[in-house]
Nucleic acid binder design. Structure first.
Lengths: 225, 225
DNA sequence: GCAAGTCATATTTTCGAAAATAATGAAATT
DNA sequence: AATTTCATTATTTTCGAAAATATGACTTGC
């Protein structure tokens, strides 16, 4: 892997996890020290991240971490529902054995990791997050549209930025059985019940969005620091 | 404007217009000579373009112009219809006076330029293309979603790559009155007839897609050269 | 004849310094 | 006191060379 790719992965992770806070200016000298490389690979990574809207930049004044806002979060969630409902419909219409197997496998993996990650260490948390991502990707992997899959990835990452502070807290959302939602979604999809699956998917995301909004309204400093 | 931004604009234009043919390897030394700058700003531009899928890259083997294909074109058009129908619905629901005025103004400008560009020089062609872009943007500018607007831009540029070879030909699509389609679309939108406007929009794009497919099937070398 | 290794060349990637521009603050002016 | 001017410093942007890696031709052994 080249240094530019390393820089891209590291910056992306640090932005999503809020290690680099929203709005924070990213100075080349600091980044160079932090990630142990020269300016060139960092600038390449920052340009990619800018195209993905995880960082902003103004010519000759450098880069900053892209800010977060409630309005943006709702836009992200709404657009996500649009993209993923379409992708899910297409997958149900077109998906074959491999697609079905992928869902079963991803759900199984997610359930296992979810049971394992009770009081998550950072590593366990990361594994759970990867499995969660893998499951939602598996659902729509049969859609046959590279644009829908790309937009899914973009929106997933953006949503993760909002979700991350929430994941750090213990015992939150005890009123909600997220794995049951995943199982029901999986079941409706495999039964090829398009409308039910789309409804469950939308409700799944909207619940999370409402929860994030409540959390952020209660403790906004967690995001804007 | 920095050199990196100049490089980005120039590369993007040359890729969209097919001056740099799909699939063509982009060697740093060549680009440096062609655009009159060093490697650094070029690499930054290429990284941004890669994130936008206009170029592809393999580590240590450099960049290439992203290829085109019929399957990709249909994916682009279908996704475009999804995105723009949603954005149009939202605009009709939310748009105010400024949005309406923007449509009227953009349509007027498009009509004028369309009449002017009979046997287009390169400059006239570019102006017409900009007005066309401006009109379609104006229709959905009231949607209030930065994600939908970004995806619109991405898909518009990608579609332009397929459309460009067609624009170069004379007397094509004489069976079609494109400006009448734009006018009807504009009218339905301003009348806030959501379903009609969405239908007209989809039909507008699908006609273009079918035409491109016919052209490319007849003369595929224009694209793959 | 053909696969595997080896060297020379071409190309990408990265660095460190130089150039260009912005930000800061002190002195001068109104 | 407020504003402008100017030098100083901080920071981004760009270059040119060096390092790392891939490519292709050539040899060697089988």
């Amino acid at each position: 892997m080249t240094l530019a790719e390393t820089a891209y992965d590291a910056l992306r992770r640090d932005i999503v996890r809020g290690v680099l806070a929203p709005g924070k200016p990213l100075r080349m000298a600091q980044l160079s020290e932090r990630y142990g490389m020269g300016f060139s690979p960092l600038r390449e990574a920052l340009n990619r991240l800018q195209a993905e809207r995880l960082v902003t930049s103004i010519a000759l004044r450098g880069f900053s971490v892209a800010p977060l806002s409630m309005a943006e979060m709702w836009d992200t969630i709404n657009t996500r529902v649009l993209i993923e409902q379409r992708a899910l419909r297409l997958s149900i219409a077109l998906g074959g054995d491999a697609w079905e197997a992928g869902i079963v496998s991803a759900l199984h993996g997610l359930m296992l990791q979810s049971a394992r990650t009770v009081d998550g260490s950072a590593d366990e948390q990361k594994l759970l997050e990867d499995r969660h991502h893998g499951f939602h990707l598996a659902l729509i992997a049969g859609c046959g549209s590279s644009w829908l899959l790309e937009f899914f990835q973009r929106l997933y990452v953006e949503a993760e930025r909002y979700r991350y502070p929430m994941l750090q807290q213990r015992n939150v959302e005890h009123h909600r059985d997220i794995q049951a939602e995943h199982a029901a979604l999986s079941q409706a999809t495999l039964a090829r019940d398009v409308d039910l699956a789309c409804d469950l998917l939308a409700e799944h995301y909207l619940r999370t969005a409402r929860f994030i909004e409540a959390q952020m309204t209660a403790a906004p400093q967690a995001q804007t620091a």
